[in-house]
Write a protein that binds this DNA or RNA. Structure first.
Lengths: 156, 156
DNA sequence: TGCAATCGTTGGTTTCATACAATCATCTTG
DNA sequence: CAAGATGATTGTATGAAACCAACGATTGCA
């Protein structure tokens, strides 16, 4: 136990920092969630990251049945956030593609989030900022990549 | 711009790290969300942090109407996560209090999250861990306290 | 004391998410 | 080419969440 004793305070600091980050993330998503629901936003995040996808593939990634997803797609299409497209190679498949409007919504959230983070970083001393980068890289490496499914729970 | 040029890479690292943290947070909440909905979990988080509260006060903090919240409370009570109590000082008020079961649910999530974070920290070199603590404290200070309302969006 | 304000619940509705089963269209394969 | 498999939508149903309006109980004040 001698060597690991500094884990506890580090965990404290991380928990606290995670709360600050969550606040930032939530704040960045708030405006978008007035336009679309969280499940709908998840779809747009997926589409903007992976590009247009088949209905079934999307349903699977989101962990819902195809019928459920078809209804969600209805709402996204109705709102002008996405469009259904034919797949010329396979006419029974339907591709869901984000519209400019849909991509714009995700971008606005991402930009907003990044801006909020930059604001915070701008309030830090440059030297601290440098150390933060190194530390966070180490943390991220140790954490490994979160699965897509996990990230989607909270909408990226 | 000369001095602020290191903000961009720092923001990159922070965005990436926030994704890792989000994965951890989502993973820690996943089991609980099989028992209660996110809105219900938010109530339990609030109750476990602030203690028993009046119906109206809870509704206000959650940003929903009292009638909406009354229904949510019904479900929490039905599930054994909370109980309605009389306020002896004011008989028209109703206090919602978490049960042991309700508190236990929140605790399990918090513990799980902390454990996941400690796991990650345990994989870092001790020296990095020390630097991380300092950096995160600086970040948290610069970020300021997120509002309760913001945190509740994603369930703390 | 009596009337107005406050607190919470309930009735009535709407929207969304979700699932299962049935159906239609299109591939694929024997 | 004729099944059988596959992909998506639609019919049907349930449950959560949310709102407004109406109501009953209680307080508080004039």
């Amino acid at each position: 136990m001698s060597k690991g004793d500094d884990i506890r305070p580090a965990a404290d600091a991380t928990v606290t920092a995670s709360r600050a980050l969550l606040g930032i993330i939530a704040r960045s998503m708030l405006p978008a969630l007035e336009d679309v629901s969280l499940p709908q936003f998840r779809v747009l995040v997926l589409l903007s990251a992976a590009g247009p996808l088949r209905m079934g593939a999307l349903a699977e990634r989101l962990g819902v049945t195809v019928s459920t997803f078809s209804r969600t797609a209805d709402r996204l299409v109705a709102g002008g956030w996405a469009v259904r497209e034919d797949n010329p190679d396979n006419r029974r498949e339907v591709i869901l593609a984000p519209t400019e409007k849909g991509l714009g919504l995700v971008t606005s959230v991402t930009d907003h989030r990044r801006q909020l983070i930059e604001d915070v970083l701008g309030r830090m001393a440059p030297a601290e900022r440098g150390r933060l980068v190194d530390s966070l890289r180490a943390f991220t490496d140790a954490a490994g990549e979160p699965s897509v499914a996990e990230l989607l729970i909270l909408g990226l």
